[in-house]
Design a protein around this nucleic acid. Sequence first.
DNA 1: TATTGTTATACTCTATAACTATA
DNA 2: TATAGTTATAGAGTATAACAATA
Lengths: 165, 165
Amino acid sequence: MAAPLEPAQMRTYFALTEAVSLLQHAVQQQLQAEGGLSYVQFEILAKLVDAGRALSMTELADGVVYSRSGLTHQAALLQRSGLISRHSDPQDQRATLVEITTEGRDRVARVLPGHIQVVRRLLFDPLSDQDVSALGDIMSRALQQMRALPPRSAAPRRRERSGPR
Amino acid sequence: MAAPLEPAQMRTYFALTEAVSLLQHAVQQQLQAEGGLSYVQFEILAKLVDAGRALSMTELADGVVYSRSGLTHQAALLQRSGLISRHSDPQDQRATLVEITTEGRDRVARVLPGHIQVVRRLLFDPLSDQDVSALGDIMSRALQQMRALPPRSAAPRRRERSGPR
DNA sequence: TATTGTTATACTCTATAACTATA
DNA sequence: TATAGTTATAGAGTATAACAATA
């Protein structure tokens, strides 16, 4: 039997999940309203802007939790909207290089101020510099842990769902 | 023009969103694998257990971001699985009272240990008691702010989507 | 034989609008 | 007239499996 969480841990867990849930919801609303973008689509565009170069589908998928087919689908939508372009990599004909278009950059530029405003209003406004620093420190440590941990199932390869659907 | 976030804020925002995203993903996997429950379904059941009494659909919707129809849909699924029951409220014939069944309680009991284990392993293990306390404090303050703020659109009632879909 | 990516398909989730019934 | 909830329907997101092409 697993011991229950301590009361302080419970409080923290609930505050964290609920706050982030509200924040995510607000951000998604803003991105959709001001740019017609889902959060995932924004993430893809932001990643391309941040990289400053074309990225392969595999590189794009890194850090995103999606399946390859899910990424292909989103990339197809973004391409149809003219926000990215895709070409096969001359170096490796199997790979697809994804590049952000000028229109894509413009779209990011259009939604970014509102995005920042939401995050600031909802998250940072009530926090002191010390809070921000402590929060960043704590979550960075948690993140390191999450990345270091093996996936929960013992199976290293082709993990399959074990439970009832 | 909105000023960009400060570097420390950026770092914190990214660490927070990525860590919570990984945590959510792990939790969702666990709930699905061990209990065949989506996170929303688990939330509904947990809320009923926590309340210790039957709740109306409106009460259930409180704190959840969903539309009424979404909640109706999820409740229908849970009822079909025998995890909740629904009856109309004798006090107010318009209302539907939702009650968790024994099977529903069993299901919660079945998934809870694994749920706790995931949260502990991914989030709390690398944190000190001070960290947990600080994190809870900070996120509670942010949460308070989020609840206090008016929705972003000025329209108080029937807000409509203003941007392109 | 392994890797990269796409396609086909199906399922889940959520939302909007219209509707019923009750207050 | 307002509120509680459901239904019908549609759209978006994600996943699995099968597939094609290249390494």
